[in-house]
Design a protein around this nucleic acid. Structure first.
Length: 423
RNA sequence: GGAGAAUUGGCAGAGUGGUCGAAUGCGGCAGUCUUGAAAACUGUUGAGGGUCACACCUCCGGGGGUUCGAAUCCCUCAUUCUCCGCCA
């Protein structure tokens, strides 16, 4: 959520910047500012009314104590009107505050100056690529065929148990999956991230805190009986650990990593591009999250990007990094780098990581602050990134490492797997 | 799931209808003393709204109610603890 102060002070700049998202926010911003004005006016009015009524109450108390009940009763009558007033004003205030909140929820984060304008993923800017695209054997297969051939992932079995998009990993497939999780966690903790295990369900307040609600309501599995949501990413529980916190400036940077399964409804997306592991309702992901001092957050973003690069380098997978354009940028993000691995057998790029700086957008909703050197509370910056998402990394490994003798295991993973080949 | 008790500032813990945003202790910060540190002493120390700055307003688990007035009384929800039940 954008800060009202920022909107008030930089109205034109914000409207201009939001155009990169193909959003004309002028009228929305106008609404917000107007609502804020009325909110303030009502608040002032209410405050004055309450002040009067507080004063009278005190006087009444004193009168009673000194035995002047009659005079007290006169004052009591006066308070009745004030009470009606304040009741009405409180209602008005609540209505206006809710409207203001709802309007603010509709405004996405302001893109960073480096974000290119653009409508869709085609306008994303490739900023880096590395790794050789392997020359595959004749008759190379896409991963869903390989999964069947070596009996390591069973999509049909998952359909029987739960539905489409809930695969069953078997044997070496399951082991490779677990190896990847451990490998990623080890890499992240070695880089200083604190390993945590968090709930896989979150309440509504957490969903609002990181911005999935109300924006992506339909994308999450919701359990109405207990009013809980299955997490679509560890970002939600991990970042919400710091909701309503005032962190000590000395504790920056706060760095956390967590493995969780992720659940996404992905309503209405079927077809060739979602075959196999390309898009699932349940998948595994290891996430990294940081809470940073505002002056350090872009440095931190760079270091997260470097960190993910290092992992892909070790896995020897060909990948590229994209700077997302305004049209493709997530609602809450100011700047996002996507990592894509090249799936040789499918001849296409698959997104495997998304690393973002949210600046104060989430912190504002989370009320996540720190005390600066002047003793004033300021909003912190939050960042997160996948390090990494499992299924497409798995797809990349299966497809790029296939040989006539089977699927070779990347060297760094062999100690984690306990085997060097799937055949 | 059943019965009982509780929920107060970073922590511990007073406060049961009126100068209570809240005693006290610990912790934090600043200072005195010291070559430096510790100890001791002194001062300071919640959050949000509002204001140029004050004033002022809100917040004692959440929500609602009673009252001129609520941390204190009532209702409700949540959470925690104890006992019982169930259980990986």
């Amino acid at each position: 959520m954008l800060q009202l102060n920022a909107i008030r002070e930089n109205k034109e700049a914000i409207i201009e910047a939001l155009k990169k998202r193909n959003l004309d926010a002028a009228s929305l911003i106008e609404t917000v500012l107007n609502l804020d004005e009325s909110r303030k006016a009502i608040q002032t009015n209410l405050d004055n009314t309450l002040a009067q009524s507080n004063k009278l109450s005190k006087e009444i108390g004193i009168l009673y104590k000194t035995g002047k009940a009659q005079e007290a009763n006169v004052l009591k009558e006066e308070t009745a009107k004030l009470k009606d007033n304040s009741k009405q004003l409180t209602e008005d205030l609540n209505t206006t505050a809710t409207e203001l909140q709802n309007a603010l929820y509709q405004i996405p984060n302001v893109p960073h100056t480096s974000v290119p304008a653009g409508n869709s993923e085609e306008d994303n800017e490739e900023i880096f690529s590395e790794g050789n695209i392997p020359k595959l054997i004749d008759g190379a297969l896409p991963h869903w065929e390989l999964a069947k051939k070596y009996d390591i992932i069973d999509f049909e079995l998952g359909v029987k148990i739960a539905g489409a998009g809930f695969p069953v990993y078997k044997g070496k497939g399951a082991r490779l999956q677990r190896a990847l999780i451990n490998y990623f966690l080890d890499k992240n903790t070695a880089a200083g991230y604190t390993e945590t295990q968090v709930p896989h369900v979150v309440n509504e307040a957490s969903g609002y805190g990181t911005g999935q609600l109300p924006d992506k309501e339909g994308q999450m599995y919701h359990m109405p009986v207990d009013d809980l949501y299955l997490i679509p990413t560890a970002e939600i529980p991990v970042t919400n650990m710091f909701r309503d916190d005032i962190v000590n400036e000395k504790d920056f940077p706060v760095t956390v990593t967590a493995y969780t399964p992720c659940f996404r409804r992905e309503a209405g997306s079927y077809g060739a591009h979602v075959r196999g592991l390309n898009r699932l309702h349940q998948f595994d992901k290891v996430e990294i999250v940081r809470v940073e001092h505002p002056s350090k957050s872009y440095e931190a973003l760079d270091s997260m990007v470097e960190h993910v690069k290092g992992i892909l380098r070790e896995l020897k997978l060909p990948y590229r990094i994209l700077r997302l354009c305004g049209g493709d940028l997530g609602f809450t993000s100011a700047l996002t780098f996507d990592f894509e691995v090249f799936s040789t057998a499918q001849d296409r790029w698959l997104e495997i990581s998304s690393v973002s700086n949210f600046e104060t957008y989430q912190a504002n909703r989370l009320k996540l602050r720190f005390k600066d050197e002047n003793g004033k509370n300021q909003l912190a910056h939050t960042l997160n990134g996948s390090s990494l998402a499992l299924p497409r990394v798995l797809a990349g490994i299966l497809e790029n490492y296939q040989t006539e003798d089977g699927i070779m295991i990347p060297e760094v993973l062999i100690p984690y797997c306990g085997f060097d080949k799937i055949d």
